[in-house]
């Protein structure tokens, strides 16, 4: 389905319908966790979630009409940001905890068993608190997540870290349409125009934090790979390597 001309309410419905399920970890390790068991659980979850993320992306209006090259570029660029915003959304009602899966809920202190992990947990928990304070709505969340995917790689050619998109205009149209849907949703809140503008800015400013956390997380995952103590799954490796290649 094409996104051009799609009414904002329909965009919101499609985005909400595309949402992936909350998964189960199943391979529960015994506590207390070690660096190896913790990373084995987290990387296994990330690998499973990546498959659902690809299914989600294919349901975004306009995504499958992009060239395969552009689909790959966007997913490679944004995958950890998309995982992180989903994690924070799942955790919004549980202060101090991160809900990686229905049966994998971790608090900050548990992350200290992995070197360098507590710093990333702290950033994720702080940004989740910001989501909670802003009372982020499901409609706003689905827009932000789609914006993260489309924005992350859209202007990357400026930094020469990845190949340019074949059709950046098509991605920009998708981005504009989803931004319009977000603005439309906020406009129905009954707030003043000034408050609406402020909320749009507050929500979009969160994306800078998500990009920062993703960069930190990518470096951390790469260090885990280099230690060679936790076997990484093929799809996760492929996505991680894409960042190293760039």
């Amino acid at each position: 389905s094409s996104i051009a001309g799609m009414p904002p309410d329909q965009v919101l419905l499609v985005l909400q319908g595309a949402e992936p399920p909350i998964l189960c970890a199943r391979q529960k390790m015994s506590r207390p966790y070690t660096e190896v068991t913790m990373m084995a659980m987290l990387t296994s979850m990330a690998d499973k979630e990546l498959v659902h993320m690809i299914a989600w992306a294919k349901k975004l209006p306009g995504f499958v009409q992009l060239s395969l090259h552009d689909q790959v570029q966007l997913l490679e660029s944004a995958w950890l940001e998309v995982l992180m915003i989903g994690l924070m959304w799942r955790s919004i009602h549980c202060p101090g905890k991160l809900i990686f899966a229905q049966d994998l809920i971790l608090d900050r202190d548990e992350s200290t068993c992995v070197e360098g992990m507590a710093e990333i947990f702290d950033m994720l928990l702080a940004t989740t608190s910001r989501f909670r304070l802003l009372k982020l709505k499901p409609e706003e969340f689905v827009c932000l997540k789609a914006i993260v995917l489309l924005n992350s790689g859209a202007f990357a050619f400026c930094t020469s870290t990845m190949e340019p998109l074949h059709d950046s205009t098509a991605v920009q149209i998708m981005l504009d349409t989803i931004t319009d849907a977000l603005v439309h949703y906020i406009s129905q809140s009954g707030c003043t125009v000034q408050q609406q503008s402020r909320r749009q800015a507050q929500l979009l400013l969160l994306l800078t934090h998500i990009r920062h956390m993703s960069n930190k997380g990518m470096e951390h995952l790469y260090s885990i790979k280099c230690k060679n103590t936790v076997p990484l799954y093929d799809l996760l490796l492929e996505m991680l390597d894409a960042h190293r290649l760039h």
């Binding site: 499973k48 498959v51 659902h52 690809i54 299914a55 997913l75 492929e238 390597d241 894409a242 290649l245």
Partner: peptide, 24 residues
């Protein structure tokens, strides 16, 4: 290395008409 070779799994999951979840 061609793009296709570099991104084997991602390409397969994106290209196939079957849901990536079912494929995996």
């Amino acid at each position: 290395t061609s793009l296709k070779e570099k991104h084997k799994i991602l390409h397969q999951l994106l290209q196939n008409s079957t849901s990536p979840v079912d494929l995996a």
